[in-house]
Design a protein around this nucleic acid. Sequence first.
DNA 1: TACGCTTGCGCTATATTATAACGTAACGCA
DNA 2: TGCGTTACGTTATAATATAGCGCAAGCGTA
Lengths: 133, 133
Amino acid sequence: MTLKATRSQTDVLDVLRQHGGALSAYDVLGTLRMTNPTISAPTIYRALAALAASGRVHRLASVSAYIAAAPTTVGNTAILSICDDCGLVEQNAAPDLLTELTKLAEQSGFSEMNDVIELHGRCASCVGSMEQA
Amino acid sequence: MTLKATRSQTDVLDVLRQHGGALSAYDVLGTLRMTNPTISAPTIYRALAALAASGRVHRLASVSAYIAAAPTTVGNTAILSICDDCGLVEQNAAPDLLTELTKLAEQSGFSEMNDVIELHGRCASCVGSMEQA
DNA sequence: TACGCTTGCGCTATATTATAACGTAACGCA
DNA sequence: TGCGTTACGTTATAATATAGCGCAAGCGTA
């Protein structure tokens, strides 16, 4: 477990923060290649893995993307609401719900839980703009 | 939206049921190729998409795998507990928790939610067999 | 300083997962 | 019969992710 952020990690995190929303690993790679043409996929994935392990980045497994953790979710599991139309991602801490979910798994003998909670749907703005259909 | 299961769908579902646990799409492909050497990836993915849409199969996004829905979760979203050691998957219906999660997203204006809930950890049996370490 | 350990990264290659695009066959129905 | 729809075959390729290996930098110890 690393204590200090490496150069790659800060670079990757900067790209994600700058963008705001979710990006694929290769989107990040493409962006970083503008300034560092020789950076490669394994470097990105290593940085993302470290950032995700320390809770500074959330992985969106259901869409193979990554997003910088919002201040309220840094270091924690986040409940991620994802708009299937525009890609907007909302981050939500909701510790009580996470506790309940973990309890559920522990009732079956599981332990050391690490949750992936991704809620797909349409955001308010996309539902609104469908009205014209 | 299809009403009747196609041949590919029943074949894919049979493989998943036979195996019991989670399989990657290419595992299913490999299995089906034993009896039908010309079946190809798109056919498998089309069948998996239809089966998942109708709730007969759950997609495990966080590990890129698929599993036949347990009787209690057919047609519904399932809370999936996944053992990171042995791959065991537990399926849990828990409709109240799902309702709460959906409500959470709806408070932010989201609608038409479709949830992905995957809890990673170690199953009882794997925790037990680590004791010798 | 010199040594050895650990960590991170470059780099190449490759594995794994998933879909695009197009044509054809089969089916149901007007 | 002719039309529309759906599923599938087929080829190719896109997109996502990791293995494996060697080098170099930093750190602690002597």
